[in-house]
């Protein structure tokens, strides 16, 4: 409700009934969002508050001791020998995942946007990993990535000696990123495909008349027009990348060393495997702050990235 609308409402109070259009609208607005807002309060805000409360405690689950220790867990963040490396691994994992996921999704979307016979089959096959069970997916990849596994077998066939993928810090990181990308790129691919189909065809025809090359068409017409989708998917992908750990647990257990231990896996270990719920909660709060800051920054940057905004 703008201020002028308010003052008008005040001025006309005597003439008009209490339930003005604006008031009715506002009431409807609150009613419409009430279920979700109640849900967010109950299932997100209150639990988050509780997690913060836990983070101020030393909580040994087995011995059921729950002792207030103030900011000790937060001080521990600063002295944790492993944490800097964990944060570094997280940054590399997320950056690699987002870049690879977005570019592959865009490439596939462009390919699948062609008028070709049987394109439906290709779309379905590229999408299929999304619905395959995570357990089956990671197990087969852990076998493919073995030193004597399928990938090195294929490389050997063309005379290349492949690395020991999961046992070398660099290739292990590449492996966990790639396996995660193949599993989920189908979702972004579909979003991009939809965005590509939303681009009016007349624009391309006009560009062709002007003699623009396909590459130029892509840069000047396609990219700007799908930039809102790019922004949305990049936010979702970054947020999602910070929440991946089941695959890492199966493929590398965070190793070799702790080179693929990302933050969410680290907090999972601390809380659920080491039973250190207090410190685990502190790491949760740290993760939440990181995600929130990143998302906020991206949202702020949208005017630069996105071509138009409603």
């Amino acid at each position: 409700m703008t201020s002028s609308a308010t003052s008008m409402a005040v001025r006309e109070k005597r003439k008009r009934p209490f339930w003005t259009m604006e008031r009715r609208d506002a009431a409807a607005g609150y009613l419409f969002i009430a279920p979700q807002l109640a849900g967010i309060t109950l299932f997100v805000l209150i639990p988050l508050g509780l997690v913060f409360w836990y983070s101020l405690h030393e909580w040994n689950v087995l011995a059921s001791t729950f002792r207030f220790i103030g900011t000790e867990n937060y001080e521990r963040l600063l002295t944790d020998r492993d944490l800097p490396r964990v944060l570094g691994a997280t940054a590399i994992f997320s950056a690699g995942l987002v870049v690879l996921n977005m570019s592959l999704a865009l490439l596939l979307a462009v390919l699948l946007n062609q008028k070709l016979a049987g394109i439906t089959i290709f779309r379905t096959l590229f999408f299929s990993p999304v619905v395959v069970s995570l357990v089956a997916w990671t197990i087969v990849w852990s076998f493919l990535l073995q030193n004597n596994g399928g990938i090195n077998g294929m490389l050997a066939a063309i005379g290349v000696e492949g690395p020991n993928w999961l046992r070398n810090p660099t290739t292990a990181m590449i492996s966990v990123i790639v396996v995660q990308v193949f599993k989920n790129v189908g979702l972004n691919m579909i979003l991009f495909l939809a965005a590509l189909q939303g681009v009016p065809r007349e624009l391309y025809e006009a560009a062709r008349v002007d003699g623009a090359s396909p590459f130029k068409q892509f840069r000047r017409i396609t990219l700007p027009l799908i930039s809102p989708t790019v922004l949305l998917t990049s936010i979702i992908t970054i947020v999602g990348s910070l929440q991946v750990f089941a695959q890492i647990a199966v493929l590398t257990q965070g190793g070799p060393g702790i080179s693929t231990t990302v933050l969410v896996y680290y907090l999972y270990q601390q809380a659920f495997q080491f039973h250190l719920f207090g410190y685990g909660s502190t790491l949760s709060i740290l993760l939440f702050v990181i995600v929130a800051v990143l998302t906020f920054a991206q949202w702020q940057m949208r005017r630069k990235i996105v071509f138009y905004e409603n």
Binding site: F43, L48, L50, V51, Q243, V264, T295
Partner: peptide, 21 residues
Amino acid sequence: MVVLLGLLIPSEVTIVPLFQM
């Protein structure tokens, strides 16, 4: 903005309080 917060929270983070509730 409050609602958007929900987008940012991994389920591992809130599973223990949710279990208690």
